[in-house]
Each structure stands twice: as C-alpha cells, then as structure tokens.
Design a protein around this nucleic acid. Structure first.
Lengths: 359, 359
DNA sequence: TCCCGAAGTTCGATTTAAATG
DNA sequence: GCATTTAAATCGAACTTCGGG
C-alpha cells in the first residue's frame, strides 16, 4: 500500500526531495523512475535506493510539469450533442472502457445541441491540449461549420453516428440500410403485408438510408408500400420529441381507418410513442399490431412488451472510435501521417415480444 | 472570428511571441492579458497594442504552464459507480451544466462497481490534480474503505445518493422516507388497501428509509401491511437485475393467490419488471393492479402505461453537488476551512397512468 | 512619490551535454 | 573510451523585484 499524497510540510513531494533522500541528483532519479534509455547504465543498487526513497516519500510526479515538457495531456475530449438521449449511454460506456485500457482520461462535454456551446467547449478542450476528440453526433444534423471547426483543430478526431467522407475526420456509423432491411424482412417473414412506416425527419442523416433499406427490401420481395401508411417525423432537436411525434402520428394513422398489422418506427423512442397510441386506441401489441424500432436503447428490453428492434452495437462503436483516435495519437507521436478511417458496422436484429406471426 | 491554434513554424504561439510582436516585454503582456491588478497602471495604448498582437498571432496561453505555477487545473473529477444505470443520466447532465457555468471541466470515470477500478481512477484523478471530486454512488453499497480513500484525498468531495454524516465528505440525497410515504399515501387515497411491496435489498442504504416511510404512513392511517405481500429484492450490483428480480418476485406474489390491488416497487426498474409479470399473468396496469415506482428514470414517462413514481430531482441534485464542491474549492483558495454539508432534498410524486382509483 | 515597464525567479520534470574516476 | 552521474537548459506563464523617468 503506497501512501498517497504524502507531503513535506504541506507541499507535494518533488523529484528533488527524492533526490535528496536517495543521495542522487534529480537527473538520475528521473532516469530511473521513468526507466528511460539511459537507465541501462545505472547499476541495480542505485535504482533500488532511488525507488525505495520514492516509495518512502510517496512521490508522485507532477503531471503539469511533465505535460509542459512533453506537450502531452493523456486526455481525450468527448463531445456529446445531447447526453439525455438514451442512445448515448452505452456508447459512452464503450468509450470510457477503451480509454481506460489505454490509460487516457475522458473530458466529457455536453453541447446541448447549441452551436455556441459547441464552440466554447471545443475551445476549452483544445486549450487543455486534449490529444484527440470523439464527437457523438446523435440526433443533431451536423452543419458544415461544425465540421470545419473540427478540422481546424488538427488533432485526431472521430465522429460517431454521422456518415462522413472527409479525409481528416474519421467516422463510425451503423449500417442503417442493412438494419432497416432486416427489420422489414422480419415483419414480412411473419406474414405482415400491410405495414405502416414512421420515417425519420428529412434533415436527419439516418433517415434516408433507413428508408432506402426498406424500399430495397420491398422491391426485392414485391412488398407493397402504401403511401397512405407512410408518415414522417417532424424536424426537432429534442430526442424525447420523437416519442411524442410517434404518438401523434400513430394516432393519425389509426384514425385514417386504413388497416395495418405492423408498424415500423424510425427509432425506439418513436416506437414507444406508437405503442402508447396503439394502447390508447385499445390495440394491443403484438396481438393487434406488431411494432419494431431501431437502436435498441436500454429501455427497449425493459418495455412491456419487450421491443423488437435493430440493435446498434453501441459499446463496440464507442470502442472503435477510441481505437481509431488512439492510433491517430500514435501516428502523431511518431510523426506519421494521420489518415481518417470510416467504419460502417453491421447492426443485429433483436427479436423480442413486440412482433408476432400473423398466422 | 479568432483564428484558433495559430502557429509559428509548427510551434504554438507563446507569450514571448506576443511580446516580440507588440514590442513589449512578456511581463507586460501577461499583466495586460490577464487583467492583473497591475494592469491599472498600464496605458490604454499599450493594452491595445498588446491585445492586437495577441489576436493577430492567435495567442492562447499554455494551460500546462499556467497550472504548473498556479497549481490549479480547473477540472473536477466525476466518479460514477455504474454509468449504465439510468439513474445517472440526468444527474450527470446537472453536474455538467453547473460545472460549465463555473468554467470547470469534468473528467468522467466509470468505476464499474469494481474496487480496483475505483482505486486506479482515484489515483489518476488525483495525479491530475482535479480540484474536487463528485461521486455518484448509485446502487453500490459503498464500503468504508472507499470513504477512507476519499477522505485521504483531501480535496472537496461530494457524494450523491448515499447518506453520510462525515465532516469531510459532503452528501446530497433524496428524502427517501418522504418519497415512500407520499407514494403509499397516494395509493391509499385511491382506495387501495391490499398493497404488495417489493422492498430494496437490505444491503442498500436506500432500502431502510423507504420502508420506514411506508411503515410510518401505515401507522398513521391504520393501513394494514400484510407480511405475505412483502418481498425483498436480492442483493446485486447490477442495475438491470432489479428488473429481473422485480419480474420474478411479482410472479411469485401472483402465484400466491393472495389478492392485491396495488404494488409498490422499490424503484422504477423493479416496477418495470413487475408490470411485465402482471401482463404475462393477464393482469393489466392500472385496470387490474396499480403500480408505483421510485426515481423517475427517463423511461418511466415513456412506458406504457406511463409510470406513476416518486421523482428524484436528479438534475438539481447534480447541480447541488457541484455548487457544494465549487464552494469548497473557493474555500481552499481563500484558505478558509472546508466544511462538509449534507443536503436531503424533497422528492415529488409524479402521478401518471399506472395507478388508478379503485372506486 | 507615482507611473510604467523589464529583468529575473519560480513552478517540477525531462533532457542534453558534460564531467567524473 | 567506458560506465556512472550530474549541472544546466528547457518547457511557458506569472509574479517579485527593481530601475528609470
């Protein structure tokens, strides 16, 4: 058990204290404790004496001083566009865990979907010399300006949740098209033919590929897409609003009296809203109507009925973003060129209790 | 628009560059840019020239150097025992937001309920000279060792979610007793008399006061507490396990054939599990059985039926913890004594759709 | 004495160049 | 020349002290 935070008359123990205690110079102490190249020439006895002295005093190097010299902070900036979006939680866990293994610490910032806040936080992080940036672009439609600011920062940067083609910023996204395809396919295989769709807002980048996946399945299997059963989520920056919109749109869908046996929602929040509207109308899920979501947010498996949905491998995506930027940091250290990489990961259909076989 | 990260042949702009550019010494530059006391004596022209030079070069002070001198990091360590616990999200939001206003940055660590991880993270944070610590002790029964380690750190520390009486560590908790009291009272006022209870695990600090609140209401209003309708959650460190336990215990409760018209769960997760078990048994909420939870986790209002629950003012609690430690930091700066404060905040009953009037 | 500005020291660790036997 | 050790310079900002007008 090392005695942490030992002090010499109220002040922290410095390398000079260790030098004095061990009888060597601070140079030698530094070389030994960091196991620097020159440590090869230092006899074992010396090393032992120094290490003993350091331990005895509870010496801990001052990271400010070290960083000042090395220009390294061992810190990574994490920018979330909206923490309260349940989509974030597991991704953050993945980021944290992988950073931990690499001995980096995350500085977490929540931009609240506000541009000014984004700018201020970016400045603060850069001032602190974070060695890389991970941006969690959930929900918000990222405008070009944000990307430009990010590029200017000139440190390794990865964005999760938004498809990019830049050669400066890396990206990690889920294969939206594949996920949506799998979801309709699932409904189709259960015998559903009259399917209602709540699509994402047009301004949101995820919306188009998901819809593309649906159309592509429809074409392949001759599923009829009834335009009157297709509605769009309104644009909004609030994650919870998709619940309310899902509720309202489903109410309208029901009021239309055009029958459907299944509903595919843009995401899980929307699906929750839809289920509530269905329940309000006396329609049980999945008995009267099957529902599928997208994301596999934590609440989905806890819902009653447990939601069938397309799972984004969120923890893995967070981990992936970290390895990308850590590689970037290493490249910078070794003065190699940093190349942006773009990963599109496969989602997985989580079949639970909100969908049932029609037969 | 300031040009961020400007460089002079690949290196950052230093105060000396600004000195050279403006024609003054670095001392004067420092005084002007920091608006130090001595700046009073410096003529406006000089100031203007220096500021112009700084802006032109895009000067940003090196925080490593500044921290080395000032011994301040403007950083606060946040330790969460388990990020994936939905209880965390809003508290973190409150912490982040209040820290932002005070110009501190949070370093977020997730201890995964593991002691070794807690120790390593604490050491890393202390090495980085975080100026305060906020510990989010959700779920885990905090052992004495953890507290001892925290006390040793000798920086302002606040713990959220665990009642403390120390005079070194501050605490912010919800009034569990009052919350539980309000919840049963609500059920009672709706005409419920046969109420089942799923209590928290004995090892969890929140369990006892919540039960106390229930007993105290029962005594006051002569409500009969049927021992056969009272069950306990098993001990566990996994937040999701309370969902499963809630499910199983409710199944058993139903199997018993001892009728109850309402169920009060230890927390929202447990309530979700209970609702699922009820549904599985063909019992609708709230038609056949009312259910109330505790916490008001984000998912609660999205659930179908929307869960009636006791709301912890989580965002406010996070904010409160921050103001406590920021006060502490100021005390340290001004060499005043840091005194721990203990706040118990009132919860609020959120009446929604999972409870109904029996009449 | 007052105003303005600069030279030099400090914070703590790392590293280069050099000095010992 | 070799093994072993160290004085001195450096990183960038802030503060103390001092001098000139």
């Amino acid at each position: 058990m090392s005695v942490r935070g030992s002090k010499v008359n109220g002040l922290m123990v410095t390398i000079r204290d260790v030098a004095k205690e061990s009888g060597f110079s601070s140079t030698t102490v530094s070389i030994v404790l960091n196991n620097a190249p020159l440590a090869r020439y230092i006899p074992a006895v010396t090393k032992k004496r120094i290490e003993k002295a350091a331990k005895k005093l509870g010496y801990r190097p001052n990271l400010f001083a070290r960083s000042l010299r090395s220009k390294r902070s061992h810190t990574v900036g994490v920018m979330v566009f909206d923490m309260t979006d349940p989509y974030c939680t597991l991704i953050l866990r993945g980021i944290e865990n992988t950073l931990y293994q690499a001995s980096y610490l995350p500085i977490l910032t929540d931009v609240h979907n506000e541009r000014s806040r984004f700018e201020r936080y970016l400045e603060m992080l850069l001032d602190r010399r974070v060695e890389a940036l991970i941006v969690l672009a959930n929900w918000l439609f990222v405008d070009i300006d944000v990307l430009a600011d990010l590029e200017k920062s000139s440190i390794p940067t990865a964005m999760i949740g938004r498809e990019l083609k830049t050669d400066t910023i890396s990206s990690v996204i889920v294969d939206n098209e594949m996920g949506a395809y799998a979801a309709v396919e699932h409904l189709h295989s259960l015998g559903h033919r009259k399917i209602a769709f709540i699509r994402g807002p047009k301004t949101l980048a995820d919306s188009a590929p998901r819809w593309k996946g649906i159309r592509s399945f429809a074409k392949a299997s001759e599923l009829d897409l009834d335009p009157r059963l297709i509605v769009d989520l309104p644009e909004s920056r609030d994650p919870i609003s998709s619940f309310e919109a899902g509720y309202k749109l489903t109410e309208e869908l029901i009021k239309q009296k055009r029958p459907f046996t299944a509903l595919m929602a843009f995401d899980d929040m929307t699906a929750f809203g839809a289920i509530r509207a269905l329940a309000k109308a006396g329609l049980r899920v999945p008995e009267h109507c099957s529902v599928v979501g997208f994301d596999d947010v934590a609440a989905s498996s806890l819902y009653t009925p447990a939601l069938t949905t397309v799972r984004q491998p969120m923890e893995a995506m967070g981990a992936m973003a970290v390895s990308i930027v850590v590689d970037g940091i290493n490249s910078v250290q070794e003065k190699r060129e940093v190349v942006a990489v773009h990963r599109k990961v496969a989602p997985e259909l989580a079949v639970r209790e909100s969908t049932r076989n029609l037969l």
